[in-house]
């Protein structure tokens, strides 16, 4: 079958503003959108810029807007999306070229919430013990691959790029509710600020966008609840 794609192109060295370009490529129905894009890049137009790495839904590099929803190109089959397949870079981050966006604003917010285990106590002789229930509390938020699909689907983030965004809140959740971690209070304090967790308006775009099916809004709700009980 032939697959039609409509791609938003932008080359900062030549263009003042982005423009649309259409391509038709041969593909099997079970091919992925990423295959179609690589077909274009390899055989039709080598100037098309995109990120991809593992191509198996684990690295999170190929997140982009596919038919107006954030998806991983490597996890979206061409038979599952309407043609022409409209492809745009992630929204809310500066475009470097074509489908490649500057991820630094995203990672800057990721680092703010201290996305690492903080514990200066002497480790026990064998290991840190954790019950199955204690581990289950943050299981969902360990699944994040940092593809930025959630944050760049969030209208709160679109209107205010200072907002930490769902991905950072997911990372914070992963450690706040880990019994081995000792910096929960500090993280909650960071999230309690003006551009923190209260900017979430429970729009649920992040939940729909997440390729790992993390229930992000629920995690954010648990952080809000923790703050309410922590401060009153």
């Amino acid at each position: 079958m032939d697959v039609k794609l409509r791609i938003k192109r932008f080359d900062p060295e030549r263009d003042d503003k982005p423009h649309w370009q259409e391509y038709t490529v041969p593909a099997e129905p079970t091919d992925r959108v990423l295959d179609a894009l690589l077909q274009i890049k390899g055989y039709q137009d080598g100037t098309l810029a995109l990120r991809r790495s593992c191509a198996h839904g684990v690295c999170g590099s190929c997140a982009m807007r596919i038919n107006h929803l954030n998806r991983l190109a490597c996890k979206t089959l061409v038979k599952d999306v309407k043609q022409p397949i409209v492809i745009e870079p992630l929204k809310g981050l500066p475009v470097i070229k074509d489908l490649v966006v500057d991820m630094e604003p995203f990672f800057e917010k990721f680092r703010i919430v201290k996305p690492f285990l903080v514990n200066d106590e002497t480790p026990p002789p064998t290991e840190w013990r954790q019950s199955i229930e204690e581990r289950a509390r943050f299981d969902d938020t360990t699944k994040c691959i940092l593809c930025a699909s959630c944050t760049t689907s969030c209208p709160s983030f679109w209107t205010n790029s200072e907002y930490l965004g769902p991905a950072s809140l997911v990372q914070a959740h992963r450690f706040i509710f880990d019994t081995r971690d000792r910096a929960a209070a500090e993280r909650l304090d960071i999230l309690n600020a003006r551009e923190g967790v209260w900017r979430c308006r429970t729009i649920f775009n992040c939940v729909e966008a997440c390729p790992r099916e993390i229930n992000i809004t629920k995690a954010i709700g648990q952080i809000k609840k923790a703050l309410v009980y922590n401060r009153f």
């Binding site: 703010i112 201290k114 500090e186 304090d189 960071i190 309690n192 600020a193 003006r194 923190g196 209260w198 809000k224 703050l227 309410v228 401060r231 009153f232």
Partner: peptide, 15 residues
Amino acid sequence: SRARPSSNFELASWL
């Protein structure tokens, strides 16, 4: 970090 002692205004407003 950028952690300043946060005011509880946004929290109170949300609640």
